[in-house]
């Protein structure tokens, strides 16, 4: 028996697909196509005509050391933030899976940060991290000048990474917990009878079985860290100090809407898109092969 639904008239199937196609086309393919067009032309900031310049926009950004600075900062941000949020989420999920008290409440509460808009949480973190009044200001009482994200680029990077990770810990946690609870309990019990203590069981049995989830979250977190970081950077540091937190996505916005270089910004966003597509393909091609054991 055929499992798919088939329609006698061909247009019924098409009609079902149309709303989705219209949405994707309007909000994804059309703007993306527009960006490609802009990146190959020189746009006038106030509208009215443009000049075809081929790949000049790309040549210009790729030869700009400030652009490469933003690429490096983005990669550092992506790797550290992804590692931090996945690591903390995994530890929390393992604890909740072991049935510590209040685990049912944790499960609900942990997803909330993901529901908070990035600018709102960035504002909260900006207060907390403020060197003169936030809770980290006590550090400055002990070692004056130790913590100052307004002046120190490393401090600023730490600040945005922590804020971003805080948001994604909850998201990763929910997936890790579901995956842990999907592992048959008998496997852990068998390992316990084989003599393994809880840490050994975690390392030898549970973590290897989590690799599909780890892979999935790796793709999602890295992709999101290239995109969803905008609101946090904009509110907390505005790319500063001295471009220390100028991530690629923020530079696109800044050059385009503050610098009125629409064409350069369009070229940057195309590079960012290609980078994300390439990363995803790479991850699926090379990492996914090693996570399927079934």
């Amino acid at each position: 028996m055929e499992k798919r639904t088939t329609f006698r008239q061909w247009w019924i199937g098409v009609a079902f697909a149309v709303p989705q196609i219209v949405l994707i086309f309007t909000f994804f393919y059309w703007p993306a196509g527009q960006a490609v067009y802009w990146s190959l032309t020189l746009q006038q900031p106030w509208g009215g005509g443009n000049i075809w310049v081929g790949f000049d926009n790309f040549r210009q950004i790729l030869s700009d050391p400030l652009y490469w600075n933003s690429v490096v900062r983005s990669i550092v941000f992506a790797l550290v933030a992804t590692g931090l949020s996945m690591g903390i989420a995994l530890i929390l999920a393992v604890f909740v899976d072991r049935g510590l008290t209040g685990s049912r409440i944790h499960r609900v509460v942990m997803i909330w940060p993901y529901g908070i808009a990035a600018p709102a949480l960035a504002l909260a973190f900006r207060f907390m991290m403020a060197p003169e009044a936030g809770f980290l200001s006590s550090l400055n009482r002990l070692w004056p000048g130790l913590w100052d994200p307004g002046l120190d680029g490393v401090d600023a990077m730490i600040e945005v990474i922590v804020a971003f990770s805080w948001k994604y810990v909850g998201y990763d946690f929910v997936f890790f917990l579901a995956a842990l609870q999907g592992i048959p309990r008998a496997l852990s019990e068998a390992a316990a009878l084989d003599g393994a203590g809880w840490f050994r069981r975690l390392r030898d049995v549970q973590l290897p079985l989590l690799t599909p989830t780890v892979f999935f979250l790796l793709v999602i977190d890295i992709t999101e860290s290239f995109q969803d970081s905008f609101g946090i950077v904009d509110i907390m540091t505005a790319g500063g100090p001295a471009r220390a937190t100028e991530l690629m996505v923020y530079k696109v916005y800044f050059d385009g809407f503050k610098g009125f270089d629409y064409s350069g910004a369009a070229a940057q966003s195309i590079v960012l898109m290609i980078l994300i597509v390439a990363l995803t393909i790479l991850q699926f091609r090379f990492i996914e092969k090693r996570v399927h054991y079934r």
């Binding site: 048959p184 019990e189 068998a190 316990a192 009878l193 203590g197 290897p208 079985l209």
Partner: peptide
């Protein structure tokens, strides 16, 4: 603990480590 009791067990659905 289970490991200190000197028992081995065969489970209903075998509980083999799939990886």
């Amino acid at each position: 603990e289970p490991r200190e009791r000197g028992c081995a067990m065969v489970f209903q659905n075998y509980a083999l480590y799939p990886h």
